[in-house]
Design a protein around this nucleic acid. Structure first.
Length: 113
DNA sequence: GCTTTGACGTATG
DNA sequence: TCATACGCCAAAG
């Protein structure tokens, strides 16, 4: 297991219940700015048995990244709604459920570089 | 090792 | 809002 992987998993695990974050935000928090794809790659190959709030990770647009109609897609919708996140047409209004810079700082202790 | 793939993001029209 | 183009780069084959 690489360090960078652990940082990514840690960043995902830190997303509070009822909120969501984008792949890019997770990558940045993991010290890998511009590598959103890596986050997706890792999530798709998450070791079985490892519990992560993977469903709280969305595209920057607020859309669910998985293929609409797929099993994973439906699971993600269900899990998000189960914790009070509004999902409409495969999309979550980030204006209300997304982590903004302030909350980011509060949660992850970011006080600047 | 080289090539392809991909749960992404930003810019542009 | 939708589409297309390009950058990104670790994994998988």
């Amino acid at each position: 297991m690489q360090d960078s992987h652990r940082h990514v998993y840690a960043a995902i695990a830190a997303i509070p219940r009822g909120r969501v974050a984008s792949y890019g935000a997770i990558a940045a928090r993991a010290g890998l700015p511009g590598r959103a794809r890596l986050v997706g790659t890792l999530l798709g190959k998450t070791p079985p048995g490892m519990s992560l709030p993977w469903h709280r990770v969305l595209r920057a647009s607020g859309h669910i990244a998985l293929a609409p109609g797929s099993a994973g897609y439906r699971a993600q919708c269900r899990l998000l709604r189960a914790e009070g996140v509004e999902v409409r047409n495969g999309r979550v209004p980030l204006s209300r459920f997304g982590l903004d810079a302030d909350l980011d700082r509060e949660l992850w202790g970011l006080h600047g570089p």
